[in-house]
Design a protein around this nucleic acid. Sequence first.
DNA 1: GGACTATATCCGTAAAAATGGATATAGTCA
DNA 2: TGACTATATCCATTTTTACGGATATAGTCC
Lengths: 115, 115
Amino acid sequence: MALLFQSLDDVTRLRILALLLEEEDLCVCYLVAVLQLPQSTVSRQLGVLKSAGWLKDRREGVWIHYSINRSLGAIQQFLVPVLRTFLLGTETARGDLERLKNLPREGGAVLPGTR
Amino acid sequence: MALLFQSLDDVTRLRILALLLEEEDLCVCYLVAVLQLPQSTVSRQLGVLKSAGWLKDRREGVWIHYSINRSLGAIQQFLVPVLRTFLLGTETARGDLERLKNLPREGGAVLPGTR
DNA sequence: GGACTATATCCGTAAAAATGGATATAGTCA
DNA sequence: TGACTATATCCATTTTTACGGATATAGTCC
């Protein structure tokens, strides 16, 4: 159980969760663009969230899309509403979502080379 | 918010919370005896939980009693039922509570020198 | 005051996590 | 096949956290 909370004790991971609670399905390149962090950092934290059971990934061509795992563990199911309520009000989450909204897109993907 | 989860990502701290969710009001010496950890470790983690807002303390003579803070923050209030539900079933919590039950007592205090 | 007890804090060390550039992997397109 | 892109993983370094013995603080009792 400590491990579960540990997966939530990092600002970057919470930012990712907040985004995926609102947007369902984002590819890594989006997240890199929105979070404005090095790709290796983002990928690593995505890996942590995935192995904690929060996220699942799905490859689509070159892109890998992450989304909230639909079959969360019992504790996580309790935590989702808490996260939704208290995370999305954050200034950080607000900024991230705003930045997401303004990303240059093409269909469902970030324009290649835009990063 | 990451800070709040951070206060829950340590096994010792969760053990302490589990005990105080069941027992309301325990002095440090009890906790040291039950957790079977060095006193400095227990005091340190109590300090973390206290400064995270989970606990409050009250001096009573030589003893300092800790208990769950009655005026928890909003997020914490949501988390308490989660902790109660998923923590108390644990094998660790079971063992700790059992050990607590079997401590030699006198009135409300551990027998002096028993530690 | 002095001996004793409970607790907090200090401090040097060890363990764990995060960081980010570099490299590896794997898919796409020509 | 080769060039290119997205992503994961590696690795050396830094930052954070935990640890626990030792010491300091503070209350109690004689």
